[in-house]
Amino acid sequence: MSTLDRTWWHKQWRHLRLWRRFFAQAVVRETHFRAHFLTTLLVGLVQLGLGIVPTLLLFGFTAELHGWSRAEVIALVGVFQIVTGLMATFVAPNLNRMTTYLTEGELDGVLLRPVSSQFYLTLRWINVAELTNVASGVAVLVIGLVQADLSPGAGQIVQAVVLVGTGLVLLTAVWSAMSFLAFWLQSVNPIGFVFLNLMEAGRYPLVFFPVAVRTFLTFAFPVAFATTFPVRALAGDLGWGTVGVGVGLAVVAMLLVRLLWRRGLLTYSSASS
């Protein structure tokens, strides 16, 4: 009997193809709900505008705060919008239904498939409409960069992109870990709410917070990697060291979440009836 995947690489390839199918299906779904697309777009734009209000007001009282100019903070709001948009597109639709997966027995249907169940539960659903927020985020980022008179080189852009990537992985890991508590708790529905509210701290540069909070936002709830560090990389005042730390942290976080998932599954498979 031949095996399903000849090598480890074949297995990753199969999962990649599957993810492509998830995406195609999400696009098909979206075409059925045109009103949803429009509402998401409008709400996203209004929220983006709203998110800039405190920044604009703040810089009405001062020209510069802890080395950040208004234009740089606007660029940061743009990055924040990109990151939250990506999370809302690819991660949020999945982690928000973790309780349903576990309590309604939907997880059983997933465990029977020859795919990584963690991959499936974290990435199955995609909300394509939220990608509009990524687009508006890019626009705001460009406006901020132009106003700040910054023209980052290729190396800096690579740094920023890698940092946003690690930030996304780290935040997804934290949110996953919070959601996977569903294996042991009755309901984790409000946990996504806590996560999104904590995310709001990413709208501001890290140095705007007291030192203790900075540590929290770098290592415990690592939103700094997703917003502050990429913008600093674009401004050219960040070395590759931080990028390395970010990648290292992302790997550790993934391993820890993987471990937690395994523990959870063990509880699930021996306790569910």
Partner: peptide, 21 residues
């Protein structure tokens, strides 16, 4: 319990199985 996806035609679910398996 349904294992098909509700909002899309069955063919989409089948194609998903194609990639899954």
């Amino acid at each position: 319990k349904t294992m098909l996806w509700w909002d899309v035609p069955a063919m989409e679910s089948l194609l998903l199985h194609k990639d899954m398996y």
